[in-house]
Amino acid sequence: MVRRTAALMGVILVTSRSFSDGDLDLVERAAQAGHRILRGPAHHDLDQLRSLLHGADAWIAGTGAVTEEHLAAAPKLKVVARYGVGTESVDLAAARDRGIPVTNTPGANADAVADHAVGLMLAALRFVPDGDRRVRAGDWGVRRGRELGAATVGIVGFGRIGQGVAARLRGFGPRVLAADPFLPDDVVRALGAEPVALEDLFRRADVITLHAPGGQRLVDAERLADMRPGTVLVNTARGDLIDEASVARALHDGILAGYAADTLDGDTAAHDSPLLAPELADRVIVTPHLGAQTTQAVDNMGSLSLADVIAVLSGAEPAHPVPNASIPVRDPVPVPEETR
């Protein structure tokens, strides 16, 4: 048995709520590698994190902000591992300036989020949550929905999650459009979608699902005005991709028939979002970041982030580094063998 000494112990700060909450005991895995897990608040409040950061050798960070001030409070920090794909909440330039590598977990939750996106499409098209509320209130009146197979579905962002959505849609049979500036048209076709420009997708699709990085605005009043009346919009990506006030107006005006999302801009602080207005409850579905919350995705994200942390603390290169620059990091795209 190898004896661990204090000099070998590394402190790994974890601020993701679901880390090691699946089938795998990642706390024990870290201990076997000679490191100790220290838990911190998921909201990343600096006042509450400061003392924890001061002694941390590594940080497995959730969705909260990782700012220059956070990094300045962590003099021993050697790596920040984002528990997930998006890194827009991390000050990558500040990490670069301090020589701190940043990693993420590409593809770890892709299947889970793709499942959830298709589930939200069906729930919105068939008024599932509203039907449940009506029955519980004693109202068995029906609302006529639409079949997914009869729709044209537009996928904005065709990385691993977008591709997973396209694969799941094949059994329903809709026409599938995809807009992604990073992918050649022949690759998009090989992956089961028709490549189109973003503007064309918003004009032609009956159902639009967003899978793009945050830090940009994709849906505003101008874009909504170009959509087909009765469009259903699904967002399992980031809340800041849409202008919530404009989407709420479009729902009132009938431009949008439904909005289904796994996020709001500001999330738990967004209880006053116009999308949560009582009069829109029959057309808006919001879930509390359920997309990545499967046992399999939790295990995948935890395993990848911990493996990269252990690698860096042992002097090796991490398997999933992200560019240390102030640019959004998108989900990597697996290219089919026949197009290589």
Score class of each variant (00 low, 15 high):
128 V>Q: 07
205 A>I: 06
290 L>Q: 08
177 L>F: 11
77 L>C: 07
203 R>E: 15
240 D>Y: 09
96 R>N: 12
282 D>P: 05
137 A>H: 13
189 R>M: 07
329 V>M: 03
318 P>N: 10
196 V>K: 03
239 G>H: 08
31 A>E: 12
323 P>H: 13
203 R>K: 14
75 P>D: 09
234 V>W: 05
163 Q>E: 09
45 D>Y: 01
258 G>R: 05
162 G>I: 03
205 A>E: 01
338 E>V: 15
214 G>P: 12
177 L>H: 10
278 P>Y: 01
314 S>V: 01
66 V>G: 05
174 P>H: 00
100 I>R: 07
208 I>C: 00
301 M>D: 04
340 R>H: 14
50 R>E: 15
31 A>D: 10
84 G>F: 02
254 G>F: 06
24 L>I: 13
211 H>E: 09
288 P>F: 01
33 A>V: 11
154 G>K: 07
26 L>C: 11
113 V>R: 01
218 L>Q: 02
24 L>V: 11
250 A>Y: 00
54 H>P: 00
40 G>C: 05
295 T>M: 03
158 F>C: 04
32 Q>I: 10
35 H>A: 11
302 G>Q: 02
269 A>V: 00
334 P>A: 15
124 A>V: 11
212 A>T: 12
83 Y>D: 04
209 T>N: 13
260 A>W: 06
278 P>H: 02
125 L>S: 06
108 A>H: 11
287 T>K: 00
252 H>P: 00
240 D>C: 10
13 L>E: 06
108 A>V: 13
34 G>N: 04
56 A>I: 11
272 D>Y: 00
236 T>F: 02
277 A>W: 01
316 A>R: 14
206 D>K: 07
110 A>I: 10
134 R>C: 06
154 G>E: 02
36 R>T: 15
82 R>L: 03
98 R>F: 11
177 L>K: 13
136 R>L: 11
212 A>V: 12
312 V>Y: 01
134 R>P: 11
197 A>Q: 14
137 A>I: 03
86 G>R: 00
126 R>E: 06
19 F>D: 02
94 A>D: 05
299 D>N: 15
108 A>Q: 10
164 G>I: 05
77 L>I: 08
273 S>H: 03
139 D>N: 15
192 G>W: 03
